[in-house]
Design a binder for these strands. Structure first.
Lengths: 255, 255
DNA sequence: GCTTGACCCTGACGCTACGTCAACCCTCCA
DNA sequence: TGGAGGGTTGACGTAGCGTCAGGGTCAAGC
């Protein structure tokens, strides 16, 4: 007759494990001796080893009871099911590994590579850290909504960066962003630059947005983001409106 | 301003998930509106998307907070650690799959193949289902204690099966096992057959057991198993003792 | 003004397979 | 006779939420 500790040791499990199996009814409670100790016979050892063998193979405890009674056909089916579950789980983890591997550094953690590449380019042309972070957060919002469009969008953005006026805009934004003063003349300059770029683009023909770009939420959020980041945003928006444009991202013609 | 449902939808998670992140302090609680509803700005959306991106890559929530603040070096280290965890987990599951694949049918569920092969052979020579099950359980106990020795042991057992007297013993055991009567003459026959085999083996030279076979527990358990399975076991042991052997499995010379 | 359905709130339990106390009892050995 | 090393039950903790229960709120149509 074995005590619970001996039984557990024989099967290579902990005492707690044996008691757990009793609790969930997987292993029947044995007789107790005079002092209340559980006393196990050999058949309990056999049962426990069977359970552990199947459990070690990845079968959830809740199914083991049935499995050990099942006939060949039912068993084959159960095995099939469990195997496919395992395959699925493995694939999930493999995918996680691939993604983890891409989390090499910094922004790459949360952005597709083409976007981080674009952000690097902005840094090269002199955009400040603060503006870069705002830019990055904006792209996070966009990439969350339209991940599949990011490569094409970023290609356009790279092309736009060839325009010296846009670069100039980014630089002025950077300077203003780095100070806290409400320098009205710089805000005017920002508005002029933006309006100039927008007017030119508008004259070249409004790009007709596809059905899938109709969702305003990402752009609302980006506007909100800018407003959260800098208290001078309302003033800039006001200046832009005077120049015939409404908003801060994806601006609309007004007036 | 977003409600919790809108925020969750934007980030592709459930409302419960957002609340959970608040609870564990991963996402800061936002302001409430007049009716007590949480109201989120764009930066909350950005934060939530960052969290999900990293979480989807398999990083445990408890580490995400730190990770999103970490510098490049610490991040690379964390990524390395998580990747190795994932690899480990994947290997565990692969192993499970292999084992699951072997759980094709019946006894193979809990026994190494050479043992099931031996059991099949026993069935072929006419051993009854009941005796087979006892035999199987005994091997489960042995295989649990000395899994690495099973191939060699089974090879010996196969060889022993060539002996017609052993086959005869198994058949008588089967007949007796299938009835409940305490047929004394059959019990005597069993004892005679066993004693004969043992005497021959003893005369041929006692196999000296290696250090690792010293553990008596598996054999005690097997004896116990037989006793549990059949009430006539004590009588058989008694008959065996009269013939100079003690026990039922791994018998010892006495008297 | 009233209903209805879709939201929101907090609080709490459930899931898996045990690990890990706490507080106490039993046995064995020097 | 005392202490070490078993055993007992009961309860909470783990990860990441799902899923009630039992409320309050909002927007819209009647």
């Amino acid at each position: 007759m074995l005590t619970i500790g001996q039984l557990a040791a024989y099967a290579g499990v902990t005492v707690r494990t044996v008691r757990h199996y009793h609790q969930i009814g997987l292993l029947p409670e044995p007789e107790r001796d005079a002092s209340g100790y559980r006393r196990y016979g050999a058949s309990a050892a056999v049962a426990l080893i069977k359970i552990r063998t199947v459990a070690d193979a990845g079968v959830p405890l809740s199914q083991i009871g049935l499995m050990l009674q099942a006939d060949a056909a039912a068993l084959a089916e159960a095995v099939e099911k469990i195997d496919s579950d395992l395959r699925e789980e493995i694939e999930r983890l493999e995918l996680s590994r691939k993604r983890i591997a891409q989390l090499a550094a910094g922004d790459a953690l949360v952005l597709p590579p083409e976007v981080t590449c674009y952000l690097d380019r902005l840094r090269e042309v002199g955009v400040s850290q603060r503006i870069l972070e705002g830019e990055r957060d904006g792209w996070i919002l966009l990439a969350a909504r339209w991940p599949e469009h990011m490569p094409a969008v970023m290609a356009d953005k790279f092309a736009e960066l060839e325009d010296p006026q846009l670069v100039r805009l980014y630089r002025v934004l950077s300077e203003v962003g780095d100070s806290d003063a409400a320098d009205e003349s710089r805000l005017e300059e920002i508005a002029d630059l933006m309006a100039g770029l927008l007017d030119r683009a508008y004259a070249a023909g409004e790009p007709d947005l596809g059905e899938e770009w109709q969702d305003e939420m990402p752009f609302d959020l980006m506007n909100n983001l800018a407003a959260e980041a800098d208290p001078r945003m309302p003033r800039i928006v006001e200046l832009m409106r005077k120049r015939g444009w409404d908003g801060w991202t994806r601006l609309k013609r007004v007036d």
